[in-house]
């Protein structure tokens, strides 16, 4: 089990306290009716799925309950950093 640093609680806690919420920094379209089918496909379904450095969202569901972002290596599962939601992509 991996340990995850919650940037709000400022503590490393075990993974079972957290829920992964998928790829980070995917912005919902501001003008839904102006989007093409291809735009919707990209927004809804296409994912980076990188082998290596990955930006993802986590939620400290059994702690403070807040969403935050993380950078993790998908080969070693090691976290590079975690940062608060709304902060720029690292």
């Amino acid at each position: 089990m991996i340990l995850i640093h919650c940037p709000y609680c400022d503590e490393k806690r075990p993974e079972i306290e957290f829920a992964n919420a998928g790829q980070a920094h995917i912005a919902r379209p501001l003008d839904p009716s102006g989007q093409s089918d291809a735009d919707w496909e990209t927004y809804l379904f296409i994912r980076a799925n990188p082998r290596g450095r990955h930006h993802e969202r986590w939620r400290h569901i059994h702690g403070c309950g807040r969403f935050f972002n993380a950078v993790r290596d998908t080969v070693t599962d090691k976290f590079e950093t975690t940062y608060k939601a709304g902060e720029p992509r690292r």
């Binding site: 993974e15 079972i16 799925n49 993802e56 993790r72 998908t74 080969v75 599962d77």
Partner: peptide
């Protein structure tokens, strides 16, 4: 979580 590690957690 997304991973290529070919291993998972004990829980």
């Amino acid at each position: 979580y997304v991973s290529y590690s070919q291993r998972g957690a004990l829980h």
